[in-house]
Design a protein around this nucleic acid. Sequence first.
DNA 1: TCCTTTCCGATGCGCTTGTATCGAAACCTA
DNA 2: TAGGTTTCGATACAAGCGCATCGGAAAGGA
Lengths: 198, 198
Amino acid sequence: MPRVVDHESRRRRIAAAVFGLIAEGGLEAATLREAADRAGVSMGAVQRCFATKEQLMLFVHDYLNAQVTARVQTRIDAAPDPGDTVTMLAETLAGILPLDEDSRAESRVWLAFAAQAAVDPALGELQRRSYRELAALFALLVRAAAESGRFRAGLDPDVVAADLVTMTDGLSVQLLVGLHTPDSARVVLDARLDALRA
Amino acid sequence: MPRVVDHESRRRRIAAAVFGLIAEGGLEAATLREAADRAGVSMGAVQRCFATKEQLMLFVHDYLNAQVTARVQTRIDAAPDPGDTVTMLAETLAGILPLDEDSRAESRVWLAFAAQAAVDPALGELQRRSYRELAALFALLVRAAAESGRFRAGLDPDVVAADLVTMTDGLSVQLLVGLHTPDSARVVLDARLDALRA
DNA sequence: TCCTTTCCGATGCGCTTGTATCGAAACCTA
DNA sequence: TAGGTTTCGATACAAGCGCATCGGAAAGGA
């Protein structure tokens, strides 16, 4: 059993390379050769880690989700009150939005996948699942905040969660295209949260 | 001056073909050969009408805007009270959203261009201009509705217009991905309009 | 009628793509 | 140390791409 290498870390390295390529040039810029170059490996290595390009792209989609999740967790941990449900909700929302260069790159990749998901059933199903998880998280936090009295009573957590997902998508597009600035987006976000508070 | 043909109508025919290709398979499916086939012309004709593929894509972007505008105008004309500002606003919003198969196709193409615009400055500028026009129209209608007493006084038309643009983008994405249904999207839209009424 | 001018359809070219292939190198076991 | 197994790097290949080329067809003026 010779020449054993850490496949998983190499897969992540390649995924990170593809992520960068998509962030800079869209899905069309994601070619196996460029990915191999950027990851510092040969094409043969890429082909050994991923049987087809489609599998690679699905892995990159998961990699994107992991990146966003990690960013959000970091934000929450750095907040003054990491255990507070409203803090968690606010930091999650702010962490998803493209408010700095890193999150802009993530959002560009997200948008590229969203466009592809609209014409690719398999990717669409994957994305639908991701959205459902996000909405469930939002609903969980909203319900907890309402029960603890931090949010108004009588809110429908699922409806509010869906609204928040819709808002983040809209704001992300507007931030990327440049019609919203990070400052103006924060105003919208804060206003939305204020409207929920008791 | 022989062999004179109607260039403009041929350009629209080709644009319509590319539009269909993008709606079905994303930007990657938009190739000159497929476009020529679908439009029922030869590649030579396509090359005569558009010097490069980039010019063709920019034309398709304008074609998309024209399609949406025409749909919205049709909706307004068919409404019971075409002259009412609130009616115009409501029909414009509903016309933009992917609520039926035709508008879903338009929204898929819009999303494909939005993703490309995030990594292509020229297309980004074009899209920014389109968004500004839309926001200006919304602001105009909101201001008129507020002055005529149909909407609450004290609304900032520009802020409301930006919010409406953001909402339509978010709803469009959620409708395309399948987390919102046409019915649930209409509920959100109606609620947003109700919140503006006096 | 013929000629000039415009147009178009077909074909070719250079390039890039994803994937397949394969000899060589690397490593663990015996 | 020898052997066998796994991995990798380079290369080959077919397909598809945008774009360039060009001979002939079409149409109005002389």
